[in-house]
């Protein structure tokens, strides 16, 4: 008996090829020997390439192909903000604690402040700027429920909420809490944020 669970992701990198691209965010059951064959594939990989200087990064941001020059040490966040003028994601803690930098990378919610841009070549980045799909979308729910004050944390919260609702269209309030626990608001707008997420779930179902 083999019970193998493997989550695969969208994208075109070699890693994703090995992981079996095409099974977007799905759980695939593959048999035991698959690991061995993947190991053989890895063994056949050529010698490694060292990137030590600036290099050209290509990635898709909100559906648009973008290109810029980066150093290996540039984070995805700083690349978006400083080089591509995508300033929805904010730099606040810069240490994977506060969530203001949250983006969706190949379908996964991640902190862009602790993701190297160079590791995102060919990947799809979705940021808060692309989530306004009409009055039933999450950004509108934040406005209707006043889930924001100064607004600096809001892009991260909207992004986390959107992904949470994509995965769980009928959340309880505690599930909403867990879904946005990777984000911190200093003005203290959590009550509106929670209401916004629940309201968005409702209107999205109605739509």
């Amino acid at each position: 008996m083999a019970d193998l669970e493997q989550k695969t992701k969208q994208g075109a990198s070699r890693r994703d090829f090995l992981r079996g691209s095409g099974f977007a965010a799905a759980t695939a059951v593959i048999t035991g020997p698959a690991i061995a064959s993947l190991d053989e594939a890895k063994a056949a990989e050529p010698e490694f390439k060292i990137v030590s200087d600036t290099t050209t990064l290509k990635l898709k941001v909100n559906g648009v192909d973008r290109t810029c020059e980066i150093e290996p040490r540039c984070t995805l966040l700083d690349t978006l903000r400083n080089r591509l003028d995508v300033t929805g994601p904010k730099r606040v803690c810069d240490r994977a604690s506060c969530g203001a930098c949250t983006v969706i990378l190949d379908g996964d919610l991640v902190y862009s402040c602790t993701t190297l841009a160079i590791s995102c070549g060919g990947k799809k980045v979705e940021t808060v700027e692309s989530f306004d799909s009409g009055v039933n979308s999450v950004p509108h729910a934040f406005v209707q429920n006043d889930g924001l004050m100064c607004g600096y944390c809001t892009p991260g919260f909207v992004t986390a909420c959107k992904v949470m609702l994509d995965h769980n269209p009928n959340p309880t309030i505690d599930e909403v809490r867990k879904g946005v626990d990777g984000n911190i608001c200093r003005c203290g707008t959590y009550v509106g944020v929670l209401q916004a997420a629940l309201a968005a779930a409702k209107t999205m179902k109605g739509a």
Binding site: R81, T87, G88, P89, G151, Y152
Partner: peptide, 27 residues
């Protein structure tokens, strides 16, 4: 009454002072 600048903030389109990038800007 919902705030007038709510949507520009909630869509990440509001430009905060730290988001500004005038031509030729240095860090």
């Amino acid at each position: 009454i919902t705030r007038l600048d709510g949507l520009v903030k909630a869509t990440g389109k509001a430009k905060y002072p730290s988001d500004m990038h005038p031509e030729g800007m240095l860090f």
